[in-house]
């Protein structure tokens, strides 16, 4: 097990609604350094909304969110957070950008306004591409790659920032199942290297095999420590009442 240290994400009684509908209700949880957290729940349960609140793309109606011990309203150190969005494989496939240019975006905040990427920044880009096994594709156009390859490029972009926290929203949607296995191996490797991970998914089986803590989301959030295995009770919170746990043998 990891030695758990400082709190990286802290939600306290957070509420958020779109118009009249409450999307996130009284949510409290915390994530500590080095954890590999799975966030599961059915479609429309509020998973992506929680992620967007965490990234300050949305503002909570009430409650408090802390990132790395700082109130999110004052938090400015976004370089610490890498984000791979849900729609990563659904971007404009005709966009004129090479794989290298896309991953470079991960270093923009570090380079600063008006300055080109330094040699050091470029080395980080190359290193991130190497980590996801996409270095040989650096000069290819992003739109010419397969969905799985594109997803790895977006992970490389998030890794290039050298994040302490990596948030992945449904990263394997549209990705070939054969590639998914190596993808989760990569995530485990990153977690071992000290990166805190939040993996959002509706695929309970995959998540439960890989993570140490489970956040079950269904407008509210239930937290389950599953480092010693997962029980049906851990999951029914999110999928009640239809949920049937399917054993996976690998």
């Amino acid at each position: 097990m990891h030695t758990l240290g400082e709190r990286i994400v802290d939600f306290k009684n957070v509420n958020f609604s779109f118009g009249s509908g409450l999307a996130v209700e009284n949510v409290s949880f915390s994530i500590s350094k080095g954890e590999f957290v799975g966030m599961i729940g059915p479609n429309g349960s509020g998973k992506s909304t929680i992620v967007k609140l965490m990234l300050h793309l949305l503002n909570p109606d009430s409650g408090k969110i802390m990132l790395f011990g700082t109130d999110i309203q004052q938090f400015a150190d976004w370089k610490k957070i890498g984000y791979v969005p849900q729609k990563a494989t659904f971007f404009d496939q005709n966009f004129p950008a090479t794989v290298f240019e896309v991953v470079s975006m991960g270093r923009f905040a570090n380079a600063g306004l008006g300055k080109p990427l330094s040699q050091n920044d470029k080395e980080h880009v190359i290193d991130a591409l190497r980590q996801v096994g996409m270095l040989e594709y650096a000069k290819r156009r992003i739109g010419d790659l397969s969905g799985g390859q594109q997803q790895r490029v977006f992970i490389a972009r998030a890794l290039a920032t050298k994040p302490e926290l990596l948030i992945l929203d449904e990263p394997t949607v549209g990705v070939d199942s054969r590639i998914q296995h190596s993808f989760y191996q990569l995530l485990k490797k990153l977690n071992k290297a000290g990166i805190t991970l939040i993996l959002v998914s509706h695929d309970v089986g995959v998540v439960s095999r890989n993570v140490s803590k489970l956040l079950c989301v269904n407008r509210k959030v239930n937290v389950h420590d599953i480092s010693n295995g997962i029980s049906k009770a851990d999951l029914t919170c999110a999928y009640y009442p239809e949920f049937e746990m399917v054993p996976h043998h690998h």
């Binding site: 793309l57 976004w78 370089k79 984000y83 971007f91 950008a97 975006m105 991960g106 923009f108 905040a109």
Partner: peptide, 11 residues
């Protein structure tokens, strides 16, 4: 390329 990610990166 990606307005949402740009925003999330602090731009």
């Amino acid at each position: 390329f990606d307005e949402e990610c740009a925003k999330a990166s602090g731009i």
